[in-house]
Amino acid sequence: MSDYKNRNVSAHCETGVTNILFEEKGLKVSEPMALGIGSGLFFFYLPFLKVMGNPLVSYRSFPGTIFKKCCQRLGVTYIVERFRSKEKGAKRLDNLIQKKILVGAQTNIYWLSYIPKKFRFHFNAHNILILDKKGSDYIVSDPLLEEAAICPPRSLEKARFSKGPLAPKGMLYYLKNHSKDFDYEQVVRKGIRETVNRMLVPMPFIGIRAMKSLSKSIRKWPKALSQRRARLYLASVVRMQEEIGTGGAGFRYMYAGFLNESGTKLNNKALIEASKQMEAVADEWRNFATLAVGVCKERSKANYDDVADHLLATAAREEAVYKYLKENFL
């Protein structure tokens, strides 16, 4: 496996795969840049939709959109293939590997046996790269891991064709061509504009509004649910923020990285200042997680109201960053 050292270990699967696929084509798009240009930073809370028994909370945009938007905005052609039959899906993958095409795949994460057991839940929108095939086994580069891993064909098949929400249907994707140049500033602007607009839009369940809704829910949980369920709900929010691979604080640190990187490249003071603000917001998210877990474990004097209060305060600070960007950069 020493041939396949992943020099670009990433914090998050989709941004990681985007970064690696682009770099292979000679386009330097770091993981934070992928997040920013792909308008991946987001927040939504859908209390009526349960995922594995927990209310749906997400700190990022819908799976697949980061990659697509990066391609669109950077003028890169990409191909996405889905399959009705597992056999056709496997055959096509082998075909692409033979052609030495670096291919990304959407998969369920539970069936990927090389991932530590603790992190294997049924989530159907994980992204990996498939590098090669040795015998019947596949050599897989998971952007979250430093070393490539061996994935037996049956595991990969189950992962690629897992059913349920966000079912991958064997999805494979790869890049074709790219136009040589893109306007860096324009692309950054587009990415930020979409993020800012979506976060500030006065619609329920999304953006800053969603954070406020979540805060209300957190206040209600200990009263409306059993102690056990309330703790689990709270823990699930923290898990969405930290466990799933976000680079910390639900992608907020990564976004601060994007603002800093683009700000430095464009020599733009507003972006650099926004980066500092976003970093501070990310710190508050970390504090929120710490507070929440303290309540879950009943280890602190804090209660659900304190957690809800802190979330509100964090939401307000994050809102301020978007407004700052709106006034000083957009």
Binding site: S10, K118, A235
Partner: peptide
């Protein structure tokens, strides 16, 4: 896991993390 943090030069870089007790507790 990779977490992003600010270094002494003011850049935000990838840092390897062996775990966070808060994340561990939630999981």
């Amino acid at each position: 896991k990779i977490r992003y943090a600010r270094d002494k030069d003011g850049n935000i870089i990838k840092v390897k993390s062996t775990g966070w007790s808060v994340e561990e507790a939630a999981t």
